[in-house]
């Protein structure tokens, strides 16, 4: 009976939501892992620019504030890719930035990644058994300073969790539904921010064309781009963005990228 009760308790604890604070620490370790594979691009002007675009969009998302906030950084790689670390740190590669045709397409890419953070898609990659194990340790300890044995177990679970997420982000990619969900949310964020939601479709169209000559990066982890284009097309709002401002934003995008 005790065994049944403790199993039931553990299962219930396993379903507990991860706190924003824990998600932040998970996200930091995931970011450190990604930086170890892709070097950071040290360009203050471009970094400031992607942060402005990203912050403007994030403020229109379901969760404008996360524990540690949203941060956007560039990776020095030709590969066309983007990664959303749990908690709000988002990376895009130099290749991705060059593939975006204008500021609105860049905003669409960032909006899609912000949606993955909001939907906790990275956290969902962690195997459930790890939560069960973690809940047992967390539940049995009355203080936040852990003894050597509990700490060792927790670090091991933490390590496994980071590996689960990095594997999903870099190798396997998210599930199809998670991608569709992120596209749908991105359209909403773009519309609310007054970016052109059609920019997401334009960007995916470009990726599809590019996919015929390249199979790496985001094309490896985001399969079925043509399916996504169709779904995005069907969900586009009727009202188009103000073309004068799209032009203005495209000009500042081109000026910055030309430097």
């Amino acid at each position: 009976m005790d065994t049944i009760k403790s199993t039931a308790d553990a299962t219930q604890k396993a379903a507990r939501p991860i706190s924003d604070e824990e998600e932040y620490y998970v996200g930091r370790a995931v970011a450190a892992q990604i930086i170890s594979s892709y070097p950071l691009l040290d360009d203050k002007g471009l970094t400031a620019y992607i942060n402005k675009v990203g912050q403007a969009v994030a403020l229109h998302s379901e969760k404008p504030y996360t524990y540690g906030g949203y941060h956007f950084a560039l990776l020095d790689s030709d590969e066309v890719n983007a990664f959303a670390c749990p908690g709000g740190t988002i990376f895009i590669t130099r290749g991705m930035l060059k593939t975006a045709g204008n500021e609105d397409e860049l905003a669409a890419v960032l909006a899609h990644e912000i949606a993955h953070v909001n939907h906790k898609d990275g956290i969902a990659a962690i195997k459930k058994s790890r939560w069960t194990e973690a809940a047992t340790i967390i539940g049995s300890s009355a203080v936040k300073e852990y003894g050597a044995q509990d700490l060792s177990k927790l670090v091991s679970i933490f390590e496994g969790s980071i590996d689960d997420i990095v594997k999903t982000l870099v190798v396997n990619g998210y599930g199809r539904d998670q991608e569709y969900g992120a596209d749908k949310a991105a359209l909403t964020y773009l519309e609310k921010t007054a970016y052109d939601p059609a920019a997401l479709k334009d960007f995916l169209d470009r990726l599809t064309v590019q996919g015929k000559s390249s199979k790496g990066g985001i094309l490896k982890t985001h399969p079925g781009t043509s399916d996504r284009v169709e779904k995005v097309k069907a969900s586009l709002p009727e009202k188009a963005a103000d073309s004068r401002f799209v032009q203005k934003r495209t000009s500042r995008f081109s000026r910055l990228l030309a430097k």
Partner: peptide, 24 residues
């Protein structure tokens, strides 16, 4: 403050000295 917290991150950093958290 429980679960994955600064104490866990510190231990993880010690185990993974190849990772550069200063960049994060």
């Amino acid at each position: 403050g429980k679960g994955f917290n600064p104490q866990v991150e510190d231990s993880y950093k010690r185990k993974h000295s190849e990772l550069d958290f200063t960049k994060v």
